[in-house]
Design a protein around this nucleic acid. Structure first.
Length: 505
RNA sequence: GGCCCGUUCGUCUAGGGGUUAGGACGCCAGAUUUUCAUUCUGGAAACACGGGUUCGAUUCCCGUACGGGCUACCA
């Protein structure tokens, strides 16, 4: 391919970033990087009524977290600035007028009320050849009347004039050939009464001006593809039209349909990449990041929703994805989102990530729980012991809190029924033995413990669990002697005594 | 309703005219771990249906069914 690969992600800043949006970014990004191309972020804020404060910054932050930073965009600028469509407003009108002048579009003066009324009286009303001559527009009205209306500043829009009896065919990179009958497509609004373009005009103009070579977007855009393709043609840019790829949708896990934020709330999993607080209502929607997902796992689980490399490999780093990604291997059918599998990816990533790289992440969890780490080596040892037991980063607290402070609660029910004086004696003797213990390591501790149990005529199994409960608080966690070795002599003895006191009460 | 897109285990998917239809998640059983998790081994589990084409279709074609998307001066 002679032309440089340039792709774009073009979100509208209306709220949190949906995981489907992130996957669209990912596929764009992977394709671009695979071909040594550029990835552009363009903010499609042409609908001023839907603009939400902070949404753009949020999107940028999400991309940053995922490691999918754009090469050009509103934050860093670039040769095709500005990258916010609201700031490009003056650009669009001339193209709309060019289309009117060449007969491919027309002015329409119908008010929203008139349109609603029309839709109510005529079932399946479409603003197209069947009805456009009954409406108030530059096709139905005399030229001088049109001129007068415009000069008077009458609110009007520009609509595309869909041709009659034509078939628009294009080759989608994922779906192969797709065709549409122009008789069935309506005269979409191109320029709104407020002077802003609609998505249809803006996407074509900006993709052209920004030299976009490949346009990837969700399948929900497929029905409007004929409008865009005709626009490329009518504007005289057909030779520069990007190649299209309509990505399969991400579906809700139960039933069918596009996955929405509500499904997450209902089923108890995040849908947004990061926490999002609606500035108007103050409502917080949970995100994958704050729940405890690693960005590597997040993009990994997303890429597998609709793509595979043809082998059995399922865990990919971003670098590997870039190397192996190809749009031909993206499937056509929508994929149901499975939160269980999503968690599996995260657990896999935690297991595969080095202690050093996990340190910051886990330290943050401790920080959130009011623990300040002074000894980094100690933290590292704990991480080594529990990382395989964490599915989410946030699980670290549940799995490791007892390494940093004495347990608040003890599962005494697990030991009480079988408790007896022999055991009390054993543990009292154990504290004495431990206090005199010259070495303090897992193996020696285990040997001492076992020797003492044998001496007292107790089965090891009968005292192991109580010992664990004393140190941990419950029936979980890594090997007991590893824990004792790590928390130290003093702390171990204190915990044993504390528990004995508790039982005595 | 109309238009467009889709359909392999419950889920994500591999495969592709002749295969014991492969893998992963989840589930079940066993082993290991004197806890739990990890790990390991094994198991149940799928080509939507009907017609073609063909010596042979899960694979190609056409229908049907089902599912989804779109149908705004929203993207």
């Amino acid at each position: 391919m002679a032309t440089k690969v340039r792709v774009r992600f073009a979100p509208s800043p209306t709220g949190g970033l949906h995981l489907g949006g992130v996957r669209t970014v990912l596929f764009n990004y992977l394709f671009a990087k695979h071909h040594n191309g550029e990835f552009v972020l363009r903010i499609e804020d042409t609908d001023q009524t839907r603009y939400v404060e902070g949404a753009e910054e949020y999107i940028v932050e999400c991309l940053k977290w995922c490691g999918l930073n754009p090469d050009e965009g509103p934050q860093q600028g670039g040769p095709f600035s500005p990258y916010r469509q609201s700031e490009r407003k003056p650009i669009y009108r001339q193209y709309a007028e060019q289309l009117v002048n060449s007969g491919y579009a027309y002015y329409a003066f119908d008010t929203p009320e008139e349109l609603t009324a029309k839709r109510e009286t005529i079932p399946n009303f479409q603003y197209g050849h069947d009805y456009r001559h009954e409406m108030r527009n530059s096709l139905s009205l005399p030229a001088d009347e049109v001129k007068r209306l415009i000069e008077q500043g009458t609110p009007h829009v520009v609509r595309i004039k869909m041709p009659k009896n034509e078939t628009v065919t294009f080759n989608d990179m994922i779906r192969a050939e797709v065709s549409f009958d122009t008789n069935l497509v309506d005269d979409k609004v191109l320029l709104k009464a407020d002077g802003m373009p609609t998505y249809h005009l803006a996407v074509v103009v900006d993709d052209y001006l920004m030299k976009i070579s490949h346009a990837f977007r969700g399948e929900e855009w497929l029905p409007s593809a004929p409008v865009h393709i005709l626009l490329w043609k009518y504007l005289g840019w057909e030779a520069d039209m990007p190649q299209w790829a309509h990505l399969p949708l991400i579906l809700k896990p139960d039933g069918n349909g596009k996955l929405s934020k509500r499904d997450g709330d209902r089923l108890g999993f995040p849908v947004y990449a990061m926490n999002w607080t609606d500035p108007k209502t103050g409502d917080l929607t949970k995100g994958f990041r704050e729940l405890g997902f690693m960005p590597e796992a997040f993009i990994n689980l997303l890429v597998m929703l609709g793509w595979n490399d043809g082998t059995d490999q399922e865990v990919f780093s971003l670098e590997e994805m870039i190397k192996k990604f190809s749009i031909e291997r993206v499937s056509k059918a929508g994929a149901k989102f499975d939160f269980e599998k999503a968690k599996w990816y995260n657990a896999e990533w935690i297991k595969r990530t080095s202690i050093t790289d996990l340190r910051t992440l886990f330290n943050e969890v401790l920080d959130n729980n009011g623990i300040v780490i002074s000894d980094e080596n100690y933290l590292d040892s704990v991480i080594a012991l529990v990382k395989e037991r964490c599915v989410l980063i946030s699980d670290f607290w549940q799995q490791a809190s007892f390494f940093f402070r004495r347990p608040y609660e003890f599962d005494t029910d697990a030991v009480k029924p079988k408790w007896n004086q022999d055991k009390t004696d054993f543990f009292k003797a154990l504290t004495v033995a431990f206090s005199q213990s010259p070495a303090w390591n897992s193996t020696d501790l285990e040997n001492e413990f076992k020797a003492l149990a044998a001496e007292k005529g107790l089965k090891i199994g009968d005292v192991m669990l109580p010992f664990r409960i004393m140190l941990v608080g419950g029936k979980f966690g890594p090997a007991v002697f590893d824990i004792a070795a790590l928390i130290g002599k003093e702390e171990t003895i204190e915990r044993v005594n504390h528990f004995l006191d508790l039982l005595a009460e």
